[in-house]
């Protein structure tokens, strides 16, 4: 162990800061932090929040069409949770000195990114199963390590998110399982959904390590515990046996167990498609943004009215107090 007390006075604020993180101390909103830490966190947390609320849309599509009452309430509760998670994350982000309205503005103007998986369409009921199983599955792999991230409000939000998410993936898998135990038409529906969601789910874990720009810094700040490629491998290794249980075929002819590495080998990911979607040219980028912007703009008069009413009430209260 280094002699800390001896050196502390000669360390810069930034060095002390990095040391605190290395010692597993949490950073809280009012603590001094390097501008880059603040910016990176605003970017990542808001991106995460945006993903939650844009993610409500593809699934929200099916709330009115869910095939049974049981499925309907489960889906509603799940989409509602996503709104809640967006809210927790926006709140965490706001502790860094940026308002939710500013963050919305970034999303609506296209400046901020969100998980590109939500730019794919949900065209059959089986997509509700595939999203829960694969997309939430990949999300959990990403999210669990964040419960220990260095920024306190983010870590606390993630603890809550992870606790609530535990039913989401099970909900999706159960939908898939029911389809796979059903009629031929239902099995086909399930296989088709897997075919369409498999590769986007793999892409969701981020670009490969050799091109990923943020990894090293993010590791230091505990925004990341494992690299994208490690997470992807973990996801594949745990998902393949689940597909076997369902009796579905993963749409990758190169997928096979590698005795030597103890992992599955898998085929080439189409990164051109990934970047196309990230850059705004996926199948549903426009629909998703139109929906978000539309909801926000249609809501303006409602939010304004609530503020006006609150002010009137406040004035009435004050006047009543004066009159006494």
């Amino acid at each position: 162990m280094k002699n800390e007390s001896e050196n502390n006075s000669s360390l810069s604020l930034e060095e002390i800061f990095e040391q605190r993180i290395a010692n597993d101390e949490k950073i809280e909103p009012k603590d001094w932090m390097p501008e880059k830490y603040r910016k990176t966190h605003i970017r990542q947390i808001s991106q995460h929040a945006h993903s939650e609320i844009v993610g409500m849309l593809p699934e929200g599509n099916w709330i009115t069409r869910a095939p049974s009452l049981r499925r309907k309430v489960a889906l509603l509760a799940k989409v509602q949770d996503e709104a809640g998670h967006g809210l927790y994350l926006y709140s965490a982000c706001e502790t860094l000195g940026v308002s939710r309205e500013e963050l919305y503005e970034q999303l609506h103007s296209g400046k901020a990114k969100y998980s590109s998986i939500f730019n794919y369409p949900t065209i059959t009921w089986a997509d509700m199963g595939a999203i829960g199983w694969l997309v939430d599955g990949a999300a959990i792999i990403n999210q669990v390590p964040l419960c220990n991230t260095s920024y306190g409000p983010y870590a606390r939000a993630m603890v809550r998110v992870c606790k609530e998410e535990s039913f989401h993936q099970r909900q999706g898998f159960e939908i898939m399982l029911t389809l796979c135990k059903g009629t031929e038409v239902q099995k086909q529906m399930a296989q088709d959904a897997l075919n369409r969601w498999w590769w986007p789910a793999l892409m969701m874990l981020g670009p490969t390590d050799d091109v990923s720009v943020h990894t090293e810094q993010s590791m230091k700040w505990k925004l990341k515990r494992k690299t994208n490629d490690e997470l992807r491998q973990q996801f594949i290794d745990q998902t393949v046996p689940q597909a076997d249980i369902l009796g579905l075929t993963i749409p990758d002819p190169d997928l096979k167990w590698n005795e030597k590495t103890g992992h599955y080998d898998f085929g080439e990911i189409n990164w051109d498609e990934f970047w196309q979607v990230v850059k705004g040219h996926g199948p549903c980028n426009k629909e998703r943004m139109d929906a978000r912007v539309g909801a926000w703009e249609r809501g303006t008069w409602v939010r304004d009215a609530a503020m006006a009413y609150a002010e009137k009430q406040q004035n009435r209260k004050e006047n009543a107090a004066k009159a006494v």
Binding site: G60, I63, K72, L76, A83, G84, L87, Y90, R298, G299
Partner: peptide
């Protein structure tokens, strides 16, 4: 249920 995700604020959606 139709409104979920399309309301005036996250709080009202919830």
């Amino acid at each position: 249920g139709e409104l979920c995700g399309h309301g005036p604020s996250l709080e009202t959606d919830i």
